[in-house]
Simulated assay, not measured.
Amino acid sequence: MRKIAVLLTSVSLGLAAVAAAPTMAAAQDAAGPNLTAGTTVYDSEGTEIGLISSVSGSNIVVTMNGKPVTLPANAFTQGDKGPAITITLAQLTAAIDKAAADNAAALTSALQPGADIRSAGGTAILGKVKLVDATGVVVTTPTGEVKVPKNAFFVSQQGLATSFTAEQFASAVAQANQASAADDAAVAAALKPGVEVRSINGAAVLGTVKSFDNANVVIATASGDVALPRSAFNMGASGIVAAYTPEQFAAAVAQATGAPAPAAETAAGDTSAAEAPAN
C-alpha cells in the first residue's frame, strides 16, 4: 500500500468570522480595495497580515505566517495602508484557531469505517474509509486500497470529502498502485533465506528471513521464529524492511515464542523507537 500526496488546502473563514469588529466602510474609496495577488493586506489597526496569494471569484487567499487562509472578498475594505479586514490580527488568529478546532472535531466524527468519501466538488464518491490511524486514512476504492494523509480530508455540505477532484484522485491511485506493484516485485526478488530484515526506518536489524510464501514471511531470531504478514514488508535504502519498530518486533517475537526477543542490533543514531507501524 502506498501513500498519495495531498493537495494544499487552507482554513476558510466565512464573513461572520471576520465581522466581529466595527466596519471601516467609511474609509473605503469608490473603487474598492485592490484585491489582487501579491498585494499586502492589513488588519483594522494597520498591522500587516500577509500577501494575497490568489483570488478565485469571491474567495481571497492570504498567506498568513506561511499558511493559506481563505477570506471572503466582502470582508475587506480600503484602509490607510491598503486593503484591510475589519478585525484585528489577534481576532483573526482566534477565529482561525477556532475554525481549525471545529473542523478537526467534525472531521474526527466523520472519519468512520464505511463512510463514503466524496471528491472536492462533492459530485463523485471516490471510495470508502477502511481504517484511520495516526499515519493517515486507508481508503478502499474499486481499483485497490490507498493511504491518504488526514489533512487531505474535510467535511463538506455533502459529507466527508477530499481535496482531490475525481480525476486527480484516480490518477493518484493509479500512480500509487504502480509504485506498490514495483515495490512488491522488488521485495519478491529480495526475499531469500538468510537475508537480513531491518526495522521500519532501516536502522535496526530485526532478524533474517527463514522462509516465506504469498501470505507470510518467517523471520528467524535468537529467541525463535516469528511469522509476519507479507504485506508488512517493503524495500528500503538498506534492503528489506518490516513495518515494525524494534520494540514492536520484540513484542511480536515474545508473543509468538513465549520468550523475550533479544535486543535489536541498532545502528548509530537510531531513532526507530519513535517510529510508527505502517499499513
Results as ranks from 00 to 15, higher is better:
2 R>K: 11
5 A>H: 11
10 S>K: 12
14 G>F: 11
14 G>S: 03
17 A>N: 10
19 A>Y: 09
20 A>Y: 09
26 A>P: 00
27 A>D: 10
31 A>Y: 06
33 P>N: 03
34 N>R: 14
37 A>P: 04
38 G>E: 02
39 T>S: 06
40 T>A: 14
41 V>N: 15
46 G>E: 04
49 I>V: 12
49 I>A: 05
51 L>D: 04
52 I>Q: 09
53 S>D: 15
53 S>F: 10
57 G>R: 14
62 V>E: 07
66 G>V: 02
66 G>D: 03
70 T>L: 06
79 G>W: 04
81 K>E: 03
82 G>V: 01
91 Q>C: 02
95 A>H: 14
97 D>F: 07
97 D>P: 00
97 D>K: 15
99 A>H: 10
100 A>F: 05
101 A>E: 15
102 D>G: 07
102 D>L: 09
106 A>V: 01
107 L>W: 12
109 S>V: 05
110 A>T: 05
111 L>V: 06
116 D>T: 13
117 I>W: 12
117 I>R: 12
118 R>T: 02
123 T>Q: 13
123 T>L: 12
125 I>E: 11
127 G>K: 01
128 K>I: 00
128 K>D: 00
130 K>D: 06
131 L>A: 11
133 D>K: 06
133 D>V: 10
134 A>L: 09
140 T>K: 12
142 P>K: 11
144 G>W: 05
144 G>T: 02
144 G>H: 06
144 G>V: 02
152 A>Y: 06
156 S>R: 15
159 G>T: 10
160 L>D: 03
160 L>Q: 04
163 S>W: 06
168 Q>A: 13
169 F>C: 01
170 A>D: 13
172 A>V: 02
175 Q>D: 14
179 A>T: 14
187 V>Q: 03
190 A>R: 04
191 L>R: 13
193 P>N: 11
195 V>P: 01
198 R>F: 09
200 I>G: 11
202 G>Q: 02
204 A>M: 03
206 L>W: 12
207 G>K: 08
208 T>M: 03
210 K>H: 10
216 N>I: 05
218 V>F: 04
226 V>D: 01
227 A>K: 14
229 P>E: 00
229 P>F: 08
230 R>W: 12
232 A>Q: 07
241 V>W: 10
242 A>W: 10
248 Q>A: 11
262 P>R: 07
262 P>V: 00
264 A>G: 10
265 E>C: 01
265 E>Q: 14
266 T>C: 07
267 A>L: 01
269 G>Q: 05
272 S>F: 08
276 A>Y: 12
